[in-house]
């Protein structure tokens, strides 16, 4: 194992920690809203959250590169703010990872339509799988918590 390997492991750990914390902070309110709301927007938001699930990672990555690149809206914004461009930087990695992993954070929480707080992490991903029409089995493997806490 050379220094490049160690650097890769270190970067992975750092990225995973930062993204996990951000997802807990960002995921909970959206999940809470998704669980309670009767808004018509519910399905739209739930679908938007689940969207990265149906896009292959390389496709999602390509569009993130486009949006954050020098010709993309986010890229133009960060450049005009004097922040430079996000791709190939640590903040860029964090943003892309949050985007990609976001699907995994609210859905397990969103089940708690009427139930107790413990169900929060146990739940299956009913709201999302209704939107996509997929089976439970697929979602159980996709949910971080589902496998361990099958009801």
């Amino acid at each position: 194992m050379d220094s490049a390997d160690l650097a890769a492991i270190w970067l992975t750990l750092k990225l995973a920690s930062v993204v996990t914390v951000l997802l807990l902070i960002a995921g909970a309110p959206i999940a809470w809203w998704l669980a309670r709301t009767r808004s018509r927007l519910k399905r739209v938001i739930a679908a938007a959250v689940a969207l990265p699930l149906v896009l292959p990672p390389t496709v999602l990555g390509f569009y993130l590169l486009l949006v954050m690149g020098p010709h993309g809206p986010v890229g133009k914004l960060t450049a005009s703010l004097g922040l430079g461009l996000l791709p190939f930087t640590f903040p860029g990695l964090v943003i892309a990872s949050v985007f990609y992993s976001f699907q995994l954070s609210p859905p397990p929480i969103a089940r708690m339509d009427s139930v107790s707080c413990c169900n929060l992490w146990i739940g299956e991903i009913t709201s999302v799988h209704r939107v996509l029409g997929k089976t439970d089995a697929i979602f159980r493997t996709k949910s971080i918590f589902g496998a361990r806490f099958q009801p």
Partner: peptide
């Protein structure tokens, strides 16, 4: 250097203007 996992990704870095 910015390294792609494969040659398609390397090309994507250039196509999008990031490299």
């Amino acid at each position: 250097f910015v390294q792609g996992e494969n040659i398609t990704q390397a090309q994507q870095f250039v196509v999008t203007g990031n490299a």
